[in-house]
Design a protein around this nucleic acid. Sequence first.
DNA 1: CCAAAAGTGTTCCGTCTACACCCATGG
DNA 2: CCATGGGTGTAGACGGAACACTTTTGG
Lengths: 225, 225
Amino acid sequence: MTEFYSGVQKAFVSVDIIVFGFEDSKLKLLLGKRRMDPGRGEWSLYGGFVGAEESVDEAAHRVLFELTGLRDLYMKQVHTFGAVDRDPGERVISVAYCALINVKDYDHRLLEEHGVQWVELDKMPQLYSDHSDMVKRAITLLRRRINTEPLSFNLLPDLFTLTQLQHVYEAVLGEEIDKRNFRKRIKSIDFIEKTELIDKLTSKRGAALYRFNKRMYAEDPSFKL
Amino acid sequence: MTEFYSGVQKAFVSVDIIVFGFEDSKLKLLLGKRRMDPGRGEWSLYGGFVGAEESVDEAAHRVLFELTGLRDLYMKQVHTFGAVDRDPGERVISVAYCALINVKDYDHRLLEEHGVQWVELDKMPQLYSDHSDMVKRAITLLRRRINTEPLSFNLLPDLFTLTQLQHVYEAVLGEEIDKRNFRKRIKSIDFIEKTELIDKLTSKRGAALYRFNKRMYAEDPSFKL
DNA sequence: CCAAAAGTGTTCCGTCTACACCCATGG
DNA sequence: CCATGGGTGTAGACGGAACACTTTTGG
């Protein structure tokens, strides 16, 4: 049995996480400058190695927790990158994951601690190794799925206004959306609940706050925007 | 630098390939009974380890070539499976790929040589380890993409009738499609060319043979069925 | 001559899109 | 009182879904 595995080399397996946030009507991601070789000083995603006693998914959640201090965040596997020389040092195969978080939940002290910062997607610098490809894939995934899965709420606080929600869609899809058509569609989705609460921060008149009702969604998990 | 990688264990990385074919209006896949431990005798996908000097994608193509003797087949990465104990022997992380081939191109002598056979998707047995999950993911991927990417042609010969093409869609989507609506949509796609050739094998009257024009598609790669 | 598959249009209905004005309030 | 963002409805275009009969020919 061991003979069956012989003659094949092992590899390091890592996870790299594309963490998306949303602020000022812009899609942003967490990037840092590498503090270690190889690639010291280059812009890069946050990542880590898969340990011997954890699954790849678990590793991704552990690393995301390290980075954000948050658990149970929305995260999906994006793609696995396995070019021979993608890491200049050793053979490292990396599984990219995409996470969505509400920037407001993020403890800003952690930014410095991990040497990362929020960078607007539109102003993304060139990244280390194949990390730019990882981001590209993650965005493609987001765009494909945002209309068929209730992703968007993960980028917002529990309570949000319809204008905020619309801005999320506009930022992800990169195009403007008609306000009245958007709100019409939202009204037809019954697990997006209007609350009695009103947000007076962003407008003088005040805007109704809405909430994503997970239970109601779980009962009939279909989504079409 | 080497110190940076220390304290982390390496893992075997493998590829497993879900090979879809289409015959008798049915979607089928290539499955074999494992000839080796662990899991000897269980139904399983065909796979192999990623070598030290090849990328993961290259490994997938190499393994697919081993299995089919064919190159340049349509293949996409599906998902990476990394549960700690997914392989009872060693830590093996596996990247699943999905390939589409025309059964007619497949050399049937290879079936026995590799101990595999075409199994109807609807009659798929329980598979080794997490291979059933791999198949499930691959199908989800197929269904999502068949309407937005020109996949379907990869399951058919170069020349095909519209009825055959419709059967591919019906098999993948698992539902019947209205013939007139289907043909109307096909007519509006200009890179599906009608040839002067006629297929007299499946019907007495004869059916026009069509062809997917890759060049025309490459010029304007948009697809919507 | 009949069974078996190929081929062909129209109508209806629901959905998406375009589009402009009034409201409430803080400063 | 006015600037700012919140909130609302309708008409017309478009695309998808339903639906049945004629044609050809091998056996």
